[in-house]
């Protein structure tokens, strides 16, 4: 369970990233955060694994306030929170297997990882993760030989290999075309269902949020301006969140799934 209690964050340059955020996310939920760019979506999810640190309030993950964490505790928190990025963040010159195994680093001692002593279980787990996103045949390809959608699937496999309780995805489809976007979202949804991993995704595409979310949280200027199940959401809700009329580029389109 993740609980935001009066969480605020002011960046050193004075920008207000989060303002009095109160949100509780229950285990197993699939939450989509929507809002325009700069609304604080990224700050919200990056607070959960402490890539950024809120300046006031309390943020509880599994009943522990993570804002006080340092060093070892911080690493322990991060090993149970997986993250997916807009630009996939793979080591382009390394092969797919090595990139996926990097998900185990938090569970592996520094010395063992440096002499490349990943256990048999870790290797098998990495391979299984790749199979779950259907990219196991690229095992020994270099990451930069893959397309954007394939790279994002590898990064999902990396997170799976980490065996997290939570997955954070920061604009995971912003660099992808519509069919690939739907494919990536479907994998995230499937993993959420099958492994009961709580998943929080930042999106700015309305149609995708509607299609995949259980619950939608709307943000504007660092504040939560909407929070409710997807059944309560309609176009008016988005106009309220965005503070303007809905435009065509707020939609991703291409809802009919294609296999690649």
């Amino acid at each position: 369970m993740i609980e935001f209690k009066d969480v605020s964050l002011v960046y050193p340059n004075g920008t207000q990233g989060l303002k009095d955020v109160n949100v509780t996310i229950k285990d197993g939920e699939f939450v989509v955060i929507v809002g325009l760019s700069g609304a604080g979506k990224s700050t919200f999810i990056r607070s959960i694994n402490r890539i950024v640190t809120p300046t006031s309030g309390a943020l509880l993950v599994d009943e522990e306030d993570i804002l006080k964490y340092k060093g070892k505790d911080l690493r322990r928190l991060r090993t149970k929170v997986g993250m997916i990025f807009q630009n996939y963040n793979l080591v382009k010159r390394s092969n797919v297997m090595k990139n996926v195994l990097a998900g185990r680093l938090g569970h592996t001692g520094t010395f063992r990882s440096i002499v490349n002593l990943f256990s048999k279980e870790d290797r098998a787990l990495a391979f299984e993760s790749l199979r779950r996103v259907n990219i196991e045949e690229k095992l020994y390809n270099r990451a930069d030989e893959l397309s954007g959608g394939q790279q994002q699937r590898v990064s999902i496999a990396r997170v799976l290999t980490q065996k997290p309780n939570y997955i954070l995805a920061d604009e995971p489809v912003a660099s992808l075309d519509p069919p690939t976007s739907h494919q990536v979202m479907s994998y995230l949804k499937k993993i959420n269902r099958e492994d009961k991993i709580t998943t929080i995704v930042n999106l700015h595409f309305i149609d995708m949020a509607m299609e995949y979310a259980d619950r939608i949280i709307g943000m504007r200027a660092g504040e939560v301006v909407f929070d409710g199940p997807v059944s309560q959401v309609n176009e008016k809700t988005f106009e309220k969140i965005y503070g303007r009329a809905i435009r065509e580029d707020d939609m991703r389109g291409g809802a009919d799934l294609e296999e690649d």
């Binding site: 990025f85 963040n89 990097a102 680093l105 520094t110 997170v159």
Partner: peptide
Amino acid sequence: PLEAMQASGAGTIQ
């Protein structure tokens, strides 16, 4: 990629 590793709990040397 270093950011991603940090986010998954890797240490500086890793």
